[in-house]
Nucleic acid binder design. Structure first.
Length: 753
DNA sequence: AGCACGCCGACT
DNA sequence: GTCGGCGTGCTC
């Protein structure tokens, strides 16, 4: 029951007049039905025509003359349509991730109609040319029919006798009213045409489903018997690389489509490769469509329209594909669910996994969510073990390809025995061997956590915060700083553990490595792949295909080279600095490292020839390194979840990061301290406050960044804190006191701030 | 998007 | 004077 008097409503989303809110009174009879996100019927405009709107805010304060505020007429009872669901989802995202409703709406309704001239409405002549010419002269002779004259002139000249509607209203300055009267007079005709662009020409030589292994078939059968029994659930498929998760997805989608439903498949942007897509195209033909960032807004809109009208049943795309307006979504699949690209970095900072689960609840009849990964996120595996998700395992590799032999090279030992190069002796040996045999190698530098941790190159000791157990970062003036709580200590030149003087911050780049390779093996042909070399469109695919066609012997790159793509001739993978991501200054460092190492190791020996992997590290005994080298997920999980439990990090607990951006460092710090104080004055059970502290990247474009963290078992408690802070911030803004500071919230952060 | 209002030329 | 086309601005 809403006790509040007024609802702020947005009218007719589809026509991009999202800029204004209209306030309506909520009549008593509707008070228990009206809520944020729900569709309503309201009288609008001079003629009080009934229009559909959506409730975005509820309030007790009229924002103008209460006598002029009209009443909401009705709340439609019928099943929610695709757009209603999107708005509801936006309302949930606003609440759950703490963004504005407008930002949430823009995320959920990404494609706008106003894109290309190639639209569906066309205007054409309804009379023959002679008649039209006569009518044109008639208009031209009169002073008050200039608009008609312009249209006629344009239509007479049009090459195919028709003009896009938008061209007329925008370029010719003719209003819709004029067109309508001309249409009624029988001079012109307004046609709608369905015209959709297809981003990839689908060769639809469908071939039937592949024979599934008993393991795979078991998953499909179990899922379908749940589904047919009306059970909608979240499933986690933990399947080692090469165990055939994609075939399972395809079989599941087949079954879902047979039941008249549609499927959304999310994959990380980076894995949107031609091969992956072709597997879906071959099976589903033109019933499948792809969304990716290289599509123009117009093309994206077309994909959405095709989904809405039932032209397609399956959409594949990155996290934004989640908002495809299918009439009856039956399954949402998230492949490589551990990928950090599923967490949005702009407002609202939503996670595709959680949002998919929420969407699945809103969809008519409910949908099931299927998560898949070789290295599941701690979140998902934790929920699978606690019974919130259903766990499936794929333990057998389908296609041959033996598991590579993984070796760990101890860089401390290398230094001790006089090897100061960036390649361990074992890696040099193997490189030599592969280059001689004409086989390929990949060198992977882990550049995550570039903020630069400080370590001892002799014993591997890493300076850590005694309170937060994350690495300290080196700051100017010889200070070591914790990015969570702000703890600080002076940088010492001598290692506190082994007293050596090899203490330094760790930095390395792909460029240096490529240079080093060329120096050591002048005949080796190298390719480099990192943020610099993949800046232009298509360069990513170009580099990968060049390497696949053996135009180079060595591929040097950052984490982007470890995803997807099979190179059968790669028989050596070198991981140059496994530690890098281990000591990023946030609590997910070990998890990320394990995932990267496991995936990188999985690149070797995908073909017939056996492969080798060398993991170079200063910390060979670390559990991330050890368990990754054995490809032992469960062992890693046990260690990691114990650490999260001890320090109350997600997924055991929840964490909200309150991020403050300020042009003035002192002002920002003061404000952050004030925010923490406000929360502490209203302390809730089990809340733990940390900070404020400077962010991992303390300053970007002259804007200082700092954060306060709150850890709490109860997610709703965090939301309550967020609401409390938002209210306070709005008050200050209304008084004009918060010009130089902005605040954002990030729940259960995935990427460091 | 749709509607009313107000301006201005055309027709009675 | 009145009718009607057409551009503009507003819609709680």
């Amino acid at each position: 029951m809403t006790a509040l008097e007024y609802a702020n409503i947005i009218i007719d989303i589809s026509h991009e007049k999202v800029d204004r809110l209209f306030q309506y009174r909520i009549p008593d009879r509707l008070k228990d039905k009206v809520e944020v996100g729900c569709p309503v019927e309201v009288p609008f405009g001079k003629g009080n025509t009934m229009r559909k709107g959506y409730v975005l805010e509820l309030t007790d304060e009229p924002n103008w003359d209460p006598d002029k505020i009209k009443e909401i007429a009705a709340v439609p009872e019928d099943k929610l349509g695709a757009e209603d669901i999107s708005i509801r989802l936006a309302a949930w995202m606003k609440r759950y991730y703490g963004s504005t409703m407008i930002a949430a709406l823009k995320t959920v309704l990404p494609a706008t109609k106003k894109q290309n001239i190639q639209k569906h409405k066309f205007v054409s002549l309804r009379m023959d040319l002679r008649q039209a010419r006569e009518y044109y002269y008639e208009c031209a002779s009169k002073k008050n029919q200039k608009a008609r004259e312009r249209i006629l002139a344009e239509l007479l000249l049009a090459p195919d006798d028709r003009i896009p509607y938008e061209l007329i209203t925008q370029k010719l300055h003719v209003t819709a009213a004029t067109l309508k009267s001309l249409a009624e007079k029988g001079v012109i005709r307004i046609d709608e045409e369905e015209y959709y662009r297809k981003p990839i020409a689908g060769d639809s030589d469908r071939y039937g489903a592949k024979e599934l292994s008993p393991e795979q078939q078991g998953i499909v059968d179990s899922f379908i018997s749940d589904y047919d029994a009306g059970k909608r659930d979240t499933y986690l498929i933990h399947g080692i690389t090469g165990s055939g998760k994609t075939e399972v997805y395809i079989a599941l989608i087949d079954e879902i489509i047979k039941r008249g439903k549609q499927a959304i498949v999310l994959i990380p942007e980076i894995a949107l490769t031609y091969q992956t897509l072709m597997r879906f195209y071959r099976h589903f033909g033109d019933r499948v469509s792809v969304m990716n960032s290289s599509l123009s807004p117009g093309e994206k809109y077309d994909q959405m329209e095709r989904a809405r009208t039932g032209d397609i049943d399956i959409i594949i795309g990155p996290r934004s594909a989640l908002f495809t307006p299918f009439p009856n979504t039956g399954i949402i699949i998230i492949d490589e669910e551990h990928e950090s690209s599923y967490k949005s970095e702009s407002m609202p900072k939503y996670h595709a996994r959680e949002t998919a689960i929420e969407l699945a609840k809103l969809v008519p009849g409910g949908a099931s969510v299927v998560l898949g990964s070789a290295t599941p996120s701690l979140e998902s595996y934790y929920r699978a073990t606690t019974g919130q998700y259903h766990l499936f395992e794929l333990k057998r590799r389908l296609t041959g390809g033996t598991l590579p032999q993984v070796e760990i090279a101890d860089l401390r030992e290398e230094l001790r025995t006089g090897n100061r190069s960036i390649f361990s002796r074992r890696l040099q040996e193997l490189m030599e061997d592969r280059l001689n045999k004409g086989e390929q190698a990949m060198l992977f530098i882990n550049r995550r956590g570039l903020a630069g941790f400080v370590s001892c190159r002799s014993c591997g000791y890493v300076f850590k915060c005694p309170h937060c157990d994350v690495s300290l970062s080196e700051h100017r003036g010889g200070r070591l700083v914790c990015h969570y709580c702000g703890y600080e200590q002076p940088l010492t030149k001598i290692c506190p553990k082994c007293s050596s003087k090899y203490v330094s911050s760790f930095r390395a780049g792909t460029q240096q490595i490529e240079d080093e390779v060329k120096k050591m093996w002048p005949n080796a042909r190298t390719l480099r792949m990192d943020a610099d070399t993949t800046r232009t469109k298509g360069s990513y695919d170009r580099i990968l295909s060049a390497f696949a066609s053996k135009e180079a012997d060595v591929l040097v790159g950052t984490q982007m080279i470890v995803k997807g793509h099979d190179f059968p001739d790669v028989t050596l993978v070198g991981i140059l600095a496994a530690d890098m991501s281990l000591h990023a200054s946030d609590y997910r460092a070990s998890e990320r490292t394990f995932q990267l190492l496991t995936q990188a190791a999985g690149r070797a020996g995908r073909g017939e020839k056996p492969g080798n992997v060398v993991i170079q590290t200063y910390e060979p005994e670390h559990y991330s390194v050890q368990t990754a080298s054995r490809q032992d997920y469960e062992a890693f999980y046990e260690e990691e979840i114990a650490y999260r439990d001890l320090l109350r990090y997600p997924p055991i607990s929840h964490m909200m990061s309150v991020q403050i951006l300020s042009y003035d460092e002192d002002l920002g710090m003061q404000f952050a301290t004030r925010l923490r104080a406000i929360m502490e004055q209203n302390k809730r059970d089990g809340a733990i406050f940390i900070g404020p502290a400077s962010a991992a990247i303390g300053k970007i474009n002259d804007v200082y960044r700092m954060a306060v963290y709150v850890k709490m078992d109860d997610y709703d408690g965090l939301i309550a804190y967020k609401d409390m802070l938002e209210k306070y911030i709005h008050q200050l803004e209304d008084m004009g006191k918060l010009k130089k500071i902005s605040v954002q919230f990030d729940f259960d952060p995935v990427n460091g701030f």
